[in-house]
């Protein structure tokens, strides 16, 4: 690798182009992705009420709003501004885009956060996007739709009924492994057991807020019960 100092102009131009195009395409993606569901609830005559939508949104926001705020902040140092607009539209950031960016940066021996690191991450994500779009289109869009017509009704019913717990079991374990800290796991498990198996059966009206309550209670308890001494804290942050 050459070590010539990066002239700001080229990088500034890259930044300006990707900023403008990134923001515009992301806004376009946002609008296009909302157009389908908006059409469904507004015009498809499915008897969806505004109250039902607000309730559903409030319940989802109660659970995920912290993640909405924190995730962009967490990924920014690794991805850099340009790749941010790619990553949050292509999706599957932690399981696909981040590894792609990191592998490319390692292959070229460039550091994240430098101009080369940012351009490398962007190019790697472009490569990942192409592979991802093609495989999704062929295997899910075309073959998947065909597969649906072949699958026996019983199998479809089994999948429809039980895929949700299978996903949550796997994803919960994945989340536990990625944090690798016993304390928040024990707090979350205790809170979730109490809320779902004691509170919800007692007060059925709370059922749809239960997960939001779990998340907020776990965050507060994790913060209150955090390790206080400095060495442990730094250890915990790694």
């Amino acid at each position: 690798m050459t070590t010539s100092p990066a002239p700001l102009t080229a990088m500034e131009q890259f930044g300006a182009t990707t900023n403008r195009a990134g923001r515009l395409t992301m806004i376009a993606g946002l609008i296009v992705s909302l157009s389908g569901p908006l059409y469904l609830v507004l015009f498809a005559d499915l008897g969806v009420t505004a109250t039902a939508l607000w309730t559903a949104f409030a319940a989802v926001a109660g659970t995920f709003f912290i993640i909405w705020l924190v995730e962009p902040v967490t990924y920014y140092p690794i991805l850099g501004p340009a790749a941010m607009y790619q990553a949050f539209m292509i999706g599957n950031i932690s399981n696909k885009l981040l590894p792609s960016a990191v592998v490319a940066q390692e292959t070229l021996g460039v550091r994240a956060g430098t101009p080369k690191g940012s351009v490398t991450a962007s190019m790697a994500i472009c490569g990942a996007a192409v592979v991802h779009l093609v495989s999704l289109f062929i295997f899910v869009g075309v073959l998947g739709t065909w597969l649906l017509t072949l699958t026996p009704e019983t199998v479809m019913d089994v999948v429809r009924s039980y895929v949700v717990p299978a996903v949550f079991g796997a994803v919960a374990v994945q989340a536990i492994i990625s944090v690798r800290k016993l304390r928040p796991v024990l707090i979350a498990l205790g809170v979730a057991l109490v809320v779902q198996l004691v509170l919800v059966p007692a007060v059925a009206q709370l059922a749809f807020l239960a997960t939001g309550i779990c998340v907020i209670a776990t965050i507060i308890l994790t913060w209150v019960l955090r390790p206080r001494d400095r060495a442990k804290l730094e250890n915990a942050a790694v």
Partner: peptide, 26 residues
Amino acid sequence: PLLLTIVPGAALIAAFLSLGIAEVPK
């Protein structure tokens, strides 16, 4: 650093453990 690592991690674990445990009574 706790704010950016442990707290969102705990939030994720809580969300999916709660969603998972809600499947148990079914």
